[in-house]
Design a protein around this nucleic acid. Structure first.
Length: 993
RNA sequence: GCCCAUGUAGCCCAACGGAAGAGGCGUCCGGUUCAGGGCCGGAAGGUUGGGGGUUCGAAUCCCUCCAUGGGCACCA
């Protein structure tokens, strides 16, 4: 920042003409038109039906277009100039669309539940309801000054009780659904129980571990079975427990460093019973349907990475417990593993289960097999004097693994584990291979068990070396591998420093095994899978990195679950008539503080709400008392469906009227299920979390017939981030950027001391925030809008420079001065036709600006309008006035970018009312065309002279003009013209030898 | 380590494979002005990150390296 930036007084002096476009006049114009728009409901978009349908008949013939901004949370710090970038972008585009015949829906709202709002409330010692409402009011004020054309009748906040009532209702729909793998869609749970009752479907072994027939199960047992099918279910699982926040977090809210996304507190893994949403049922569709949407490739790639599909096979291993051989050894349960390399199955020399694998107890032997090496017994954990059985060792190891699973990434992973005393039978080699537990195998991925092929997998290799297990190769390494590690093809596998995981020649197979010699890896995988399928020991399978979505939080400021429990402890959804389940008023809403090593269950704040935790309901068998669920939903819940509520925000009967939903969401022409929000603009930080969750909810609603499109957001656009310089003093502390001065040689100083410059996100922590309010005062909102759009492409990150914004202000000032007399305020125009040069300038600008607006290239649209303005300044200088047609076109063309000044110009040019729905000027190619063009003539790629020809000249005309040109002979005499390239209207290139 | 994006004038950024420059900031010169600021007119400013290739012609397409930003990373 230079000294100039400190001058917050507007650049206005006594000598300034009364109608010069400066900060004072801009402010007056902006306030006046914002009031006018509000009073006339200019941006209200009528629905086809329902309470918001007034005026719908007037928009006949206008095709609907739904523009959406990502839902912000109302921060207590207020907005800085980086925040509204996307909001301005959508507003410019929406205004352009209104002027080109579209019926635009554009509203706004606040994602006001959740951790950021609650942390702010806790830090300031106020109730979150109070701080949230104050923050929303401040944000609304700041945004209103920008002149955004929102239909404010549709504004919502997730914390509004009438809104979260429907969030709870949708949760109930998810709870009351199950995923039918055969039909590949969600169905109501009632259809599942009907099929069980009719005997047309039998509960899966997983949902019904007892295996007893449905008909013989009592009511509670049946409920347990059905609960195992629900898309929202309670599960005991390893969760990300964050004592610092007093809550658990979703995987997506934990950083790669094992800390909370919010607040950067340490996160620990521990088992807890939590609400979980079965998003993994949709993994395949969430992958495949990315092909249906128009999103940036990078975002699609991030979603694909997150879902993380892999192709492989499930292979079943028979087991024996307590002894490798021996006819007397008892058989254990079969274990299924997931592998992407079934071709290496002959080389599997041991098996590893995740420490929490459900079959561990069944596989743990009563005593160590006779030849068990001491190193397999996890003896380091053995307390003195304890009888060290496999069960004791396994328990000790599970405890150990649970403690340390929060270790940091990027570290060397050591290989720890314990032998269970059980063996598995390798289906190909027939060998008995030991079964270990090790924490490098994760319960949540694949089947939670792996066949370890140490020769060809680095993790298995390291484990085998640590535990002294054999590493027989299945395929011979390629030359590159040998060369890299200084090996020859004769060297034994013991000489390998690492596993060979590439492709190579398969070694001869043992008798009875599938023959892979000479096959590629892909063919070898196929051959082995076919062999396994024939032998009944395996099948092809896909696996996903994606996990089910942990959906409860031990916090106050969220949607309460519409769930109660009866004496069985099983969950029951409350009837729709009881919705909403309102948050109880509490004076102490803080999470219960927990020590990091506390192993007791977290206590949600709602569990302390006296008089709320139990409720008397009549669920069909008379009034009885039920216990409420005291967890709340995560912040993401409310943002999973807000775009649908914008469509029909006041509906008390439905979450959205189907007719209104179809009108705005369904593609006019396209296959069934096509459509979605026409343009969704937001930051790349939501690439995975919000966009994946919202797609999941939308697909559930689609399966249940509640929405008409397969995807919520047809087109996605990521706006860039505005960054700003920050300055560090000699101690490495940030100093306020606004107080930094720049020496003439460019060196930054703060209070006389040199400081170092660093670029970063604008914000409190870097002390480099610039607020929109400051910019309104200095230049007005229109200038801020134009500057933010002119800085660069909408999707690019760009650095904020307060010094640069003056250029956008001067532009609007020149534009104004061309059209309005600065001394009198009278319009400057004549009723006369444009000359050819002015017509060319105007129509070239119209054609370019239209295309730029339509393509979201607002930076180049600004440049073209500046160009035209500069032309008008020169062409119609002080004395002359521009023709009316030119003046009006300029007012209309600037309107999307600078709506206030455009309205003012439009009205001073003699029009009544607003130009918001005036037709955008249409360019004429023939008027824009030059009559003659100057073609550069290159000789061997270098420009040597130019050629003036009629614009319409064809190749032959140009050739004759060229050969007649005096310079032609100069460059070709005595040389051979090898080739002559003529691109009419563009260039001529002579290739000579 | 793997994947993606971006490198153009002091700075922010334009440029269907066709003359390196549309627009803005800054700098310098001039005009207006008592002066400053503002406004107006003009000018300077380049190895398009480096190297190689394709092409009549490359900022643009391909390969490679470098820099910056982002995503993923014990996922069997």
């Amino acid at each position: 920042m230079t000294d100039k930036a400190e001058a917050t007084t507007p650049p206005v002096t006594d000598a300034e003409p009364p109608f010069r476009y400066g900060a004072r006049l801009a402010g007056e114009i902006e306030q006046r038109w914002q009031t006018w728009w509000r009073e006339h409901g200019t941006y209200a978009s009528p629905n086809p039906t329902g309470p918001l349908s007034d005026g719908f008949d007037d928009i006949t013939g206008r095709a609907p277009f739904f523009v959406l901004d990502m839902f912000p949370y109302p921060s207590g710090a207020g907005l800085h100039v980086g925040h509204p970038l996307g909001y301005i972008g959508t507003d410019v585009y929406a205004r352009y669309l209104r002027m080109t015949g579209r019926h635009v829906l554009h509203s706004f709202g606040y994602d006001a539940f959740g951790l950021p709002a609650e942390q702010y409330a806790i830090n300031t010692g106020q109730h979150p309801r109070v701080t949230t409402e104050a923050n929303i009011a401040n944000m609304r004020r700041q945004l209103a000054r920008l002149g955004l054309g929102h239909d404010t009748r549709r504004e919502i906040a997730t914390t509004d009780v009438p809104y979260y009532r429907w969030t709870q209702w949708i949760f109930k729909k998810i709870f009351d659904s199950w995923y039918d793998e055969d039909l590949d869609r969600a169905r109501p749970i009632a259809e599942l129980t009907a099929e069980f009752d009719a005997g047309t479907r039998v509960p899966s072994r997983q949902a019904n571990p007892s295996g007893r027939p449905w008909a013989e199960l009592d009511a509670a047992a049946r409920r347990k079975v059905v609960d195992g099918y629900r898309l929202a279910y309670l599960a005991e699982g390893l969760v990300n427990w964050c004592p610092g926040l007093g809550t658990v977090l979703a995987n997506e809210e934990v950083t790669a460093e094992g800390r909370s996304d919010i607040g950067n507190y340490p996160v620990f893994r521990r088992p807890l019973r939590q609400w979980t949403l079965r998003i993994t049922a949709y993994a395949e569709r969430l992958m495949a349907d990315l092909d249906l949407v128009d999103w940036p490739d990078s975002i699609k790639q991030m979603q694909r990475n997150w879902i993380g599909p892999s192709e492989g096979a499930h292979v079943t291993f028979a087991t024996v417990v307590g002894s490798a051989e021996g006819p007397g050894a008892p058989a254990g349960p079969a274990v299924e593993v997931y592998t992407t390399r079934p071709d290496t199955l002959p080389g599997a020399t041991f098996m590893v289960l995740a420490p929490e694998h459900p079959l561990v107890d069944a596989l743990t032997a009563a005593a160590w097999p006779g030849d068990t090496p001491d190193g397999w017994k996890f003896g380091e954990a053995r307390p003195a004097g304890v009888d060290w059985t496999p069960a004791a060792a396994v328990a000790a190891y599970r405890d150990f693994a649970g403690q340390r699973s929060d270790r940091q990434r990027g570290e060397e992973f050591d290989r720890t584990g314990v032998f269970t005393g059980a063996y598995a039978r390798n289906p190909i080699s027939g060998a008995a291979i030991p079964i270990f537990l090790a924490d490098y195998v994760l319960l949540g991925y694949g089947t939670g068990a792996v066949m370890a092929v140490p020769a060809h997998d680095q993790r298995d290799f390291e484990f085998a070396r640590t535990f002294g297990l054999p590493t027989p190769p299945v395929l011979a390494p390629d030359d590159a591998f040998l060369a890299e590690h200084g090996l020859s093809s004769n060297d034994p596998v013991d000489a390998w420093p690492v596993a060979f995981s590439g492709e190579g020649e398969y070694l001869p197979a043992p008798p009875g095994a599938p023959v892979l010699t000479g096959l590629s890896k892909a063919d070898a995988v196929k051959t082995t899978v076919s062999w396994l399928e024939a032998a009944g020991g395996g099948r092809a399978a896909r696996s996903y990195r994606l996990r089910d979505w942990l959906f409860s939080r031990q916090r106050y400021w969220g949607e309460p679950f519409p769930i109660v429990y009866d004496e069985t402890g099983l969950p029951i959804a409350v009837p729709d008539e009881v919705l909403p389940v309102e948050l109880p008023e509490m004076t102490d809403f803080r999470p219960t503080p927990m020590a990091e090593d506390d192993t007791s269950d977290p206590v949600p704040p709602l569990a302390r709400a006296a008089g709320w935790t139990t409720v008397t309901l009549d669920l069909g068998d008379g009034p009885r008392e039920y216990r409420r669920e005291t967890n709340t939903m995560p912040q993401w819940a409310g943002s999973c469906w807000y775009y649908l509520r914008y469509l029909d925000p006041t509906n008390a009967e439905r979450f959205v009227d189907p007719e209104i939903e179809r009108y705005w969401m369904q593609a006019a022409d396209g296959p069934a299920g096509d459509g979605g929000v026409d343009l969704y603009v937001g930051g790349v930080e939501h690439a995975v979390l919000h966009l994946l969750y919202a797609r999941f909810w939308h697909k559930v609603l689609y399966d249940l017939g509640l929405v008409s499109t397969k995807e919520p957001f047809k087109r996605l656009f990521n706006q860039g981030m505005i960054q700003a310089d920050a300055f560090l003093d000699s101690r490495g502390m940030y100093v306020p950027a606004a107080e930094v001065t720049i020496d003439p040689d460019g060196a930054p100083r703060h209070e006389g001391e040199p400081v170092t410059r660093r670029s970063g996100k604008m914000g409190k922590s870097l002390k480099n925030s610039v607020t929109p309010d400051e910019m309104y005062d200095m230049y007005g909102a229109d200038t801020l809008r134009v500057y933010e759009m002119a800085m660069g492409p909408l999707d690019a990150d760009r650095p904020w420079r307060t010094d640069d914004i003056v250029g956008s202000h001067r532009f609007l000032q020149r534009l104004w001065r061309n059209l309005v007399d600065e001394a009198t305020g009278e319009p400057r125009f004549v009723d006369a036709d444009l000359d050819d040069e002015a017509n060319r300038a105007l129509h070239r600008a119209i054609l370019a600006v239209r295309a730029d607006y339509a393509g979201l290239r607002f930076n180049t649209a600004v440049a073209r309008l500046i160009e035209l303005t500069n032309f008008v300044s020169k062409h119609y200088g002080d004395a002359r006035r521009p023709p009316r047609a030119l003046a009006e076109a300029m007012a209309l063309m600037i309107a999307p970018l600078a709506p206030h000044v455009a309205e003012e110009l439009w009205s001073r040019l003699g029009h009544e009312g607003s130009l918001v729905r005036e037709p955008f000027p249409v360019g004429d190619e023939s008027l824009a065309a030059e009559s003659t063009v100057t073609l550069p003539v290159q000789v061997n790629g270098k420009v040597r002279f130019t050629l003036s020809v009629p614009a319409a000249a064809g190749e032959d005309d140009i050739r004759s003009a060229l050969t007649a040109h005096e310079d032609y002979a100069k460059y070709t005499d005595g040389k051979t013209v090898k080739r002559l390239i003529i691109v009419p209207g563009r260039i001529v290139n002579i290739a000579v030898a």
